[in-house]
Amino acid sequence: MWEYTDKVKDHFLNPRNVGEIEDPDGVGEVGSLACGDALKLTFKLGPDGRIADAKFKTFGCASAIASSSALTEMIKGLTLEEAEKITNEDIANYLGGLPKEKMHCSVMGREALEAAIANYRGQPLPMAQGEVVCECFGVTDLEIKRAVAESNLTSVEEVTNFTKAGGGCGKCHDRIMELILEVRKEQHAERKPAEKPKRLTNIQKIKLIEEVLEREIRPALRKDGGDIELIDVDGDVVMVSLRGACSSCVASQTTLKEYVEKKLRELVTDTLVVEEVRQ
């Protein structure tokens, strides 16, 4: 059973603004019977250019109905410029969140809104301009890339949850992964390129561990009358032996994990595990 918030349940059981406005200013239709959910949104502008009324008809599950109902409530009283800033995350937040598998319902709401606004302005639908990636659900690369960028998606599964793309035959999974990487790359290029940790060879790793022990760790332990000796390195396991005050200190295990291992992970590679060898 899905864990729906009370707000989702409320909007599902008592949907607001059901129906179709006669002679509307904008109409947006997305989805299809075959796809499992569909939404028809109609709105009417007031003399002040704000959305005076909005109605919906939805075929779909509880969260699709609730998302549609929430959307109509959210856009009433907004100018079109304000309304078009509403994202699917806003719709989900309005409802107190949606199960991740159901995020596509909020995406459908936003797309219907975009379609209705484009219809009013006599413009083509921006998202429909792209190349269709998922043929099963008719999802374009532009829709996928936007969802990846806005909601920080990292896997094909997440993209499916948000856009439905890839939820059918699965043939487009490779293409979706490419798109995810493309978006990541673009985002990366925008940010300052961070220095990528290079893969260390075994020799380099061992040398670096020795160096960090000598330069950082041993001086710190010596201050408390202790010391440490590197015994061996096997893969990512760094075997050490504690000396001096450390060897009899009750807090030595904490020192080992909280200080030595942390330091080595920070300065060498983050997969290292430090173990004590008693001799």
């Binding site: 939805t58 043929e135 659900f137 035959c169």
Partner: peptide
């Protein structure tokens, strides 16, 4: 069905909903 955009009581049938290249076809 009253909520559904595909249901029109007077038509007793579906309207719209085409244009998707689902595996359903």
């Amino acid at each position: 069905r009253e909520l559904s955009p595909f249901w029109q009581a007077e038509h007793r049938g579906a309207v719209g909903g085409a244009g998707c290249k689902c595996s359903c076809s």
